[in-house]
């Protein structure tokens, strides 16, 4: 089963791009997190990008760091996260689920074992924030062996050599960075030059989803107009959690409204 290509074909029929929200699993605690993730799907997310709590998230800005800290304060373990993911998968058999995480979580359980656990939990893809192509070999091998898609990052400063390698190894989708820096809604994404999108397509990279600094429906619309297959919004989604701690109902209502407006902006033409 290839949930990403199913999603992209469905979206093509709908004449729309993808909206993919990101949250950290276990933020602010396991029970609330499970409701949050369910809400994102029910409100129209096309796919899920989910983080695992980590002590040293060097590619994340303050908002997503804080999500990790909340989850870890709630004593959420990686094992808990996999158990939660398996329940989400059972409830939503068709939605693509991607993990976005840091290499040491993978190394600690052994690369092969980690990918197998993810696959068993129903995960479709893994993106490791601190594994560049140059270090990707063992991770790509484990991905292939376990039927997981390894998501590769295309940064705005990527050389042609890097783009060609992404083309060679990418599957699922390509995570197109909207700008330099770390995650966060404080600095807006720059809409990728049509040139960059064209280059990705020239090298036959998997469809690009634009991330980093996406917080508004207008940005989703522009990203899709510029040729991206969709947009990922992390810090803006996590901000809604942070602003509604202690009032889960208000949080879910706000998430519903946010996802609805972002998804509405994915219509083409």
């Amino acid at each position: 089963m290839d949930r990403y290509s199913d999603m992209f074909s469905r979206l093509q029929n709908d004449n729309a791009g993808a909206f993919v929200p990101f949250v950290t699993v276990g933020d602010p605690d396991l029970a609330t997190s499970e409701r949050i993730i369910g809400q994102l799907v029910d409100s129209g997310a096309d796919a899920l990008e989910l983080g695992l709590p980590y002590s040293d998230p060097i590619a994340d800005g303050p908002t997503i760091q804080a999500a990790s800290i909340r989850a870890r304060q709630s004593k959420v373990s990686t094992a808990d996260c996999f158990a939660l993911l398996a329940r989400v998968r059972e409830k939503y058999p068709n939605i693509p689920i991607g993990l976005l995480l840091y290499s040491n979580l993978v190394m600690a359980s052994g690369v092969t074992q980690f990918y197998q656990k993810a696959s068993d939990a129903g995960v479709d893809s893994i993106l490791i924030a601190d594994v560049p192509l140059r270090e990707a070999k063992p991770f790509l091998a484990a991905a292939t062996a376990s039927g997981i898609k390894q998501i590769l990052i295309a940064p705005p400063n990527a050389s042609d050599e890097t783009m060609a390698l992404i083309g060679e190894h990418s599957s699922g989708y390509t995570y197109l960075l909207g700008r330099a820096g770390v995650t966060g809604a404080e600095t807006a994404a720059e809409i990728p030059a049509a040139e960059l999108v064209a280059k990705l397509s020239h090298y036959q990279c998997a469809p690009p989803l634009l991330g980093f600094g996406i917080s508004k429906p207008e940005q989703v619309k522009s990203a899709i107009e510029a040729g991206a297959a969709g947009a990922i919004s992390g810090s803006a989604t996590v901000n809604i959690i942070a602003q509604n701690l202690g009032n889960t109902e208000a949080m879910l209502t706000a998430l519903d409204k946010f996802v609805g407006s972002m998804k509405a902006a994915t219509a083409r033409g």
Binding site: I58, A59, S103, A129, D130, V131, P132, L133, R134, E135, L152, I153, A154, P155, N157, A158, S159, T162, L177, A180
Partner: peptide
């Protein structure tokens, strides 16, 4: 050489490689 045996390497975001 970026490694000492298995140790070392460049485990950073792709963005920092250049």
């Amino acid at each position: 050489e970026a490694k000492f045996g298995d140790f070392g390497g460049m485990y950073v975001p792709e963005l920092l490689i250049p």
